[in-house]
Structure formats: C-alpha cells, structure tokens
Design a protein around this nucleic acid. Structure first.
Lengths: 205, 205
DNA sequence: TTCTGATTTGACCAACTGGTCAAACTCACG
DNA sequence: CGTGAGTTTGACCAGTTGGTCAAATCAGAA
C-alpha cells in the first residue's frame, strides 16, 4: 500500500478516480450491492490495484462517508444571525435544494446509509450532528422568542428542510415519473420558498 | 412448487411467514443486502423450503412490492371532495404519518427501491402512480381555483406530504439521534398540522 | 390403515465476491 | 543508464450465495 509520505502525482490521480467511481457505484447500489470489480471497472483500474490504494471495500466506503458528512452539513453551519432570520432560513433551504440538484449521488449515498440503520455513522449522528443541530436550534428559538419568525417546533423545522430538499435527490425517479417533462427543481424552488414564507412569517398575536 | 389449486392451510401459514420475514430482511438490508438464508432463518424454515414456495429471491421481493404499492397509496386514493378541503388534506397528512409510525418496514422497503432507481417498479410509477396523482392534482386545482385552499404547485404539494411523512420512517435513526428521548411522532403530528394549515389556509386576495 | 400428493431437507453445485501475493513493470532521480 | 521505490497485474483462494435435486417425511382423504 502507498506509504504515508506526500502523495505522488499518480497516487492523487488514482485515489480521486477510485473515490469518484466508488461514489457512483455505492450511491446507486448501496454498500452491499456494490462490488469491488464494478468500482474497479468504473475507475479504469484492476481490482488488485484498487486494493493497493484502499485496504478494503469498507475503507473506500468509510473514506466517502467521512468526507461527505463534513461537507454535507456546511449549509447548516452557515446559518447564523447575520441577516434577516426568514431570509437567512430561505437561503439555507435554497442552498440545500441546490445540493440535491448538484450532488444527488452524495445525497443517495447518505440516504442508503441512514435507511439501513446508519450502521457505520451512528456515532457521528448522535455526537457531531446532534451537537450542531442543538446549536442551531438555540438560534431558531432566539428568533422565535424575539418574534422575528413564527414559532414552530425547531427540531422538526430542521427535519422538514432536510426531508423536503433531499427528497428531490433521493426520490428523483419517482418525482420525474410523476412530473413527466417538467423540471423538478424549478418548481421545487418556488414551492419551498412559498412554503417556508407562509410557515415562518412573523404573525401578529 | 405448490400447485395453483386453492392454497392449503400449511401453504397459507408458510407463505405469510416467509413474506413477513422477507419484509424484515429486505427493508433492513435492501435487495442485494438480503440473503435467502437470512430470510429462511427469520421465517423458521429451511432455505430449500423457501424456494419451494417462491421460485427465487427475486420473486419474494416482487410479491412484497406488488402488495405494498397497492396499499401504500390507499390514503391518497381516499382523498376526495366529501369534506372541507383543508381538513381533508390534513387528514391525509395525518394518515400518512400514521403509516410511517405503524409500518416503517414497508416505508423503508419502498425507499430502498426508489433510492436505487426503482429498477423493479419503474413502470408502475410512471403508469399507475402517475395516473392516480394526476387525478388528485385535478381535485387540488379545483379547490385552489374555488379559493377553498391557497394556491400552490399541486404536484409539489403532494411530494411534500410524501417527503415529510415518510422521512420519519426512513430516516428514523437520524431523527432519534438528534431528538434524544423525545417521541418523534408526537412532535411531527403537531408540526405538520401547523405547517399545512399555514401553507394552505385560504388567504384574502 | 393405506395411499397419494404435499411438504421438507441434507447434500450439493456453479457463480460470485472480497481479498492475497509474488512477480513484473514503470517512473524519477542521481 | 542504473537503481530502488512506487505501481500494476495475473493467478489464485476461501467464504458466501442463489438455486437444484433426489430422497425422505408428512397430511389427510378414502
């Protein structure tokens, strides 16, 4: 296996090619459904060569998940008190929907993992993820208490954003089967904007 | 294999046991991740005995999906013009959420299939499902045109209901990891009620 | 009880899968 | 050009998996 010195040019290229191929295959077939041969073919390398760069199929999967979880939550991390609360939240929704459009493979990789009980990232969920959400929930509560957005259950508000946006990546086939030719994301963008404006606009009371 | 006369007592019992076990295993591991041995063990039968009742692993999966798709859409079929539109829709949301709580395995079986591109039910989606949704969308449009609910993109409205309710079954681990001890469904029920009331309440204009 | 079709199973198989390994090849640098 | 580290691969292996089959066992109608 490659030494842990600075990676050579070849190492960089091949690692990237393998991860790219692995993302394709894992996201489309799940961990168990993916085969190393398939990933090797997709990456244009031989099977033993894959296992020269990653010690096991499991290791490729882990590498993908580790990288994913980090970047996947960036939009939520970016949510802060810098602007108007409602616009801030709408921007978050918008960014999440963009990720579903531009990185559907990542979304499906994540969905596959969670649907099957998150055997490999359960700890990260109840530690890192929970901590981040708790933090942002505090911000939401502050906004609600100050009357700057309408009060709703803050945790379920966040779940709803995840659910509604990721749905367009994870259930893409279903959405397209029903919509026909219409572009799902154009309609979704407007619909979600409307939905969260009506849900969260400060209301007299 | 069993003849196609009227099923015997034993045939009924064993077929049911097999499908029950298959639902457990398929929904938890996906099609590729499930093994016939696993299903056999769960059903308390030997592997060759399973294959006496179903010609293949594929056939068990098909039997489950066929039954599922039919019952899964019952709540939507029940949506009609008999009551107040908003309450009718809220009842639909409520029923769907109940299904996520009471039949999470079915929801996950479906999710697994769709996330991986619906290779086995693509046709049913773009024919039966699309037809049903088109039909209900006409009803929604009529309600909107009559000013009885607020206007929104009707297809995305239906997607949102599927997404928000099924999320609590499919992403159960994630939801619980974040919520801790709090019961997800209690909060979800109230949250979704609020969300759709605010989204759909007829508004002056 | 007997007999026939229904049910069950142990033994088996071929294909597939993740992973190993020694040998061969390539590259960059002195 | 020589050389040693870095890279690649064909051949191989053991475990798993979906599925087969002939033989054994069982249920129930006559």
């Amino acid at each position: 296996m490659p030494q842990d010195r600075a990676p050579t040019r070849i190492q960089k290229r091949n690692r990237a090619a393998i991860l790219e191929a692995a993302l394709n295959v894992f996201s489309a077939n799940g961990f168990r459904g993916a085969t190393v041969d398939q990933i090797a073919a997709e990456a244009g390398l031989s099977k033993p060569n894959l296992l020269y760069y990653f010690p096991s199929k499991e290791a490729m999967h882990e590498a993908l998940l580790a990288e994913l979880l980090d970047t996947w939550l960036d939009p939520l991390r970016a949510l802060d008190d810098s602007g108007e609360p409602l616009e801030e939240l709408l921007a978050y929704v918008h960014r999440k929907l963009e990720m579903s459009r531009d990185y559907p493979r990542e979304s499906r990789l994540f969905a596959n993992e969670i649907v099957q009980g998150a055997p490999r990232i359960h700890q990260a969920l109840s530690e890192d993820l929970k901590a981040l959400v708790d933090d942002k929930v505090a911000l939401l509560r502050a906004w609600m208490d100050a009357g700057r957005i309408a009060p709703v259950h803050p945790y379920h508000l966040i779940f709803s954003i995840w659910s509604l946006t990721q749905h367009y990546a994870d259930f893409d086939v279903q959405v397209r089967a029903v919509l026909g030719d219409e572009d799902p994301f154009d309609g979704a963008d407007l619909f979600l904007d409307t939905l969260y404006r009506r849900l969260l606009s400060p209301r007299p009371d």
